[in-house]
Nucleic acid binder design. Structure first.
Lengths: 364, 364
DNA sequence: CTGAAAGCGCTTACAG
DNA sequence: CTGAAAGCGCTTACAG
């Protein structure tokens, strides 16, 4: 929270700075080398090959039952855990998927990640989460990171990196699904999941127009899905012969929304409705409106986009666009897994449109 | 959101089920083998050793300037990116840290992760995030995962796994920092970061008592930090000669809070104040109270714990306990990095207490 | 049924 | 200044 004005914090703070307590210099943790297959081989008198075969349950099992048991017991006794780095190097597979998102503190992404991770888990894949901050620099770091071979597949939501750059950097057999903002033409290279952001924004704008609003401003940023949402807004406004206005923000956060709205409210503010490009912006806008003494929705109606959990908790509850991020995450993970584990049945380059719904509450 | 009662969703859903568009069967993506150091060696006529030396900028550089340039150019031209798996295997270092949390959709954890990741990034470490769901099964999966050597260090928030089990599973040189709920006695093995949950809960309870409340219920679950918070609540109540009552929940989510409160409200509900063990529970409780027609705070006061972003957006805004999760994440990451990169100057087993503050708003 | 051997791509002594 | 060699821990043909 960067908006202390609306809160009434009262410090009752105990120990201020973190201070160490205790810490008698014990001997360092047993630097016991992790047992390897070789250790098990030595312990059982079998070859390391046999150990590998048994531990990986290679079918048909060509190792005698007696030997199998001895090996399994030794593995148990020594606390053997396979070294994934070695396995990864050898097999050129990491059994790990990545989920690249712009901002983990925007509640819409944890939902996506949850869905992704649950499907990945079920298929035996670990999940790595990479937060790009929505900046070009960090998106390119994510790209570099992908190129290093940490994962077998990735679900990526980029604001700045495009398909060409993605393909150029991540050569080789990585499975990719991209979250995009509109129905791209099939590229033959990368699977896409998306909702029709322009259509959703257009529909929401139409709702505002139908309620009689004529001076509507969109609070937005042309990054990421913002561009398409602006397009939809413009289309609806033009169709109704109204002039679309924009209040620019530099980020999709609550703070950015509050800042931009406060600046706008300081001047002449002719709008009867504000359509924010996402819920965090809408929440920031609502805070600024309230600070400026405007009633919602009587003086100014507000609509958002995403339906994050907080949207329905606000007073007035926020009118917004819902999509099922969790389902989308699960869907994308399943797509990746099918490509990696499947009989290569599916070819990339497809587009998968996901549904959205308008959620009409009290703020508009 | 699992609480459709308070919302007014209205479907305007376009294409229902995800349907594939396009996808002409192009030739599969160039399965170009990623170039290796060996490829660069062959291309330049140098040895693979020399390539490794140059690319890793080993000081002092024992390779002639001319050779260096040729190697660097070839690397550039071929698009060489080091294979991290190979490097990891060889060096037994992954340059990756893990952040294990119970629930990424609880906004308090993304804040922790953000702080952690920013510090890790700055030091050149990647971050893996593991969501345990707060269940014993998935916490043990996290443990297994740690044992496989994916990371050099970890910040772990466990509800069920204790220090002994952690140490037993994760042998060898992994750096560990645990988020715990109270000042453990220094163990000589694992660094701990914590706030004094009991003191915080006691202070918040005292605030409620000072406001004249006598029948106060704590909405809680004895898992994780819940136990300590209950302890603090009990201490304050006992000290005031009031009897502490509990409303049990099975999870730290909004849905669980709403469910438990609704059940309680269906019967005789003698409480004038509810202290929820975290903000999500408090938000759920507020929804249930509102549904039951109780005014907040006039009929029932509500207090929470965490100060998640939504807390100050509610009406009435939520009285709660704030801690700086972001600072804590950053602090923990720095601790790990110091242990991994540092001159081994610090010994584990220390405890680092973090501050908290009471944030008094309108809900109590 | 079993083991010796090659190799995944890299780092790091070590010998010229 | 440079390269041959060993080895990280594993998987997987291949030969007995």
């Amino acid at each position: 929270m960067k908006n202390p004005k609306t809160s009434t914090p009262k410090a009752a703070a105990p120990p201020a700075a973190p201070a160490a307590t205790g810490g008698k210099p014990k001997p360092p943790r047993t630097p016991t080398r992790r047992p390897t297959q070789r250790d098990i081989a030595v312990a059982t008198g079998m070859s390391q090959t046999a150990v590998s075969l048994v531990l990986n349950r290679v079918e048909p099992c060509t190792v005698s039952e007696d030997a199998r048991q001895r090996i399994l017991q030794a593995a148990q006794r020594l606390g053997y855990v396979p070294n994934r780095m070695a396995r990864n190097l050898q097999s050129a597979r990491t059994h790990t998927l990545a989920c690249i998102v712009p901002d983990i503190t925007n509640p819409t992404y944890p939902a996506l990640i949850r869905g992704f991770q649950s499907a990945a888990d079920a298929a035996g894949y670990d999940t790595m989460i990479f937060d790009t901050d929505g900046t070009p620099e960090r998106e390119r770091r994510a790209l570099q990171w992908l190129a290093q071979g940490h994962v077998d597949g990735v679900l990526a939501t980029f604001f700045h990196v495009d398909e060409a750059e993605l393909l150029e950097t991540v050569r080789g057999g990585m499975a990719i699904v991209q979250v995009v903002s509109q129905a791209y033409k099939p590229s033959g290279e990368i699977d896409k999941v998306y909702i029709d952001n322009a259509a959703a924004a257009k529909a929401m704008t139409q709702v505002l127009i139908d309620k009689g609003h004529e001076r509507i401003a969109m609070l937005s940023c042309p990054m990421g899905p913002g561009a398409e949402r602006q397009r939809g807004f413009q289309a609806a406004m033009r169709k109704a012969r109204l002039s679309p206005c924009f209040i620019a923000v530099d980020d999709f956060t609550q703070a950015a929304g509050a800042r931009a709205m406060a600046a706008e409210l300081a001047g002449d503010f002719p709008y009867s409705a504000v359509f924010a490009a996402n819920d965090l912006l809408a929440i920031g806008a609502m805070a600024a409106l309230r600070t400026a003494g405007r009633r919602i929705p009587e003086d100014v109606a507000v609509a958002g986009f995403d339906d994050i959990p907080a949207a329905q908790l606000l007073l007035p509850a926020l009118t917004t666009v819902r999509r099922s991020e969790q389902a989308m995450g699960r869907f994308a993970a399943d797509l990746l897994i099918a490509r990696l584990d499947g009989p290569d049945a599916n070819r990339p380059g497809r587009g998968f449109e996901q549904p959205f719904q308008l959620v009409l509450r009290d703020s508009a």
